[in-house]
Design a protein around this nucleic acid. Sequence first.
DNA 1: TCTGGGGTCCTAGGACCC
DNA 2: TCTGGGGTCCTAGGACCC
Length: 396
Amino acid sequence: MEKIIFHIDVNNAFLSWTAIDLLNKGYKEDIRNIVSVIGGDEKTRNGIVLSKSTPAKKYGIKTAETLYSARKKYKDVKVFPADHKYYSIMSKKLFKLLSNYSPDIEVASIDECYLDYGKIKNLYGDELKFAYMLKDKIRSDLGFTVNIGIANNKLCAKMASDFEKPDKVHTLYTSEIKDKMWPLPIEDLFGIGRSSAQRLKEIGINTIGELANININKIEKIFKNQSKHVIEIANGIDDSELELFWEAKGISNEITLPKDERNIEVLNEKLLMLSEMVSKRLRKEGKYANTICVILKDNNFIRKSHQRSLKNPTNITNEIYITSKEILREFYKGEGIRLIGLRLDNLSIKENYQINLFENIEEKNKDEKIDRIIDEINDKLGNNTITKASLKNSKK
DNA sequence: TCTGGGGTCCTAGGACCC
DNA sequence: TCTGGGGTCCTAGGACCC
């Protein structure tokens, strides 16, 4: 069976979805048609562009740049806050619509997915016709536009959906790689980021085609034993399968602080909050963490992290909090901290206990039960209703 | 009024074991 | 009297993606 993969990508997802939300609420203007962006709050140092309208793009405004910088490009750019809950609803609507046609969908992020069309071609016929029908149906049913890339593997489908936007269908079949992909600049290749692109340009490689045809020796210093793989992606070679069942390998939350912080007591309070956030998500997944990692970003934007493997996996808020405090104390040197984060890794399904004479299993089970009850109450009454108070009184 | 947050994968070095 | 080498696990950091 011929492999035919679709990559479906929402155009300017956050901005489009906010535009729909605003129109539903009676807002007169469709912000997709003006110079506008979705941005964070500058007062809390979250002032970056998360999504931009097509007109904003025309003024050179880019995702992830500061609002300050965006305003320099267009003084009166309209800035709207993100609404992640609403985005999640719209995302689910999209995937639900798509699942009416195929069960073989890989959700790649909140606003994009892969669909295995090869498996359903005998039902729906020509892929190009179907793609046009699908994109128009999404637009009429859900109110936003998508790009659809069609190819013989995931990589090329992804590349194709990134061609001209918005509201377009493109193909990048294996036979079209030379003509459609090789002339593109090297930084357009999926998997080549800023750092790799820079180093490739330094050795005179500027297009995907140049990379595709390079002698492997010339890039081995840069890419080590990934060199073969890098040349393959430049040739549009990718035999990876769709991953239909995604499971998180780690759970993390981070916060940027309103000002640089040097007070370890304040940092500990943030760790308490982060412990509550990550451990609640962990319990919801029914999992246990084997590794706890504390992340710091200092006022020079340097990230540092320290982690610890646990003797026994846990999902208990207080255990995670106590451990994270110890880790922080071990490596915090008093520098101004801009961001603090907490990550749980090496997740396992069941507590894989080795008998530990010094640990009271019944006590642990009780702690976990209490945490779950707290989760339930907070879900009903809104977050942080009882958690902090109960923890502050808990034993060290 | 400068630079988010949530992920994955890879590398390299050290510890440890045989 | 001159220090192997493979395998695995842990840790820290970097690159990349949306």
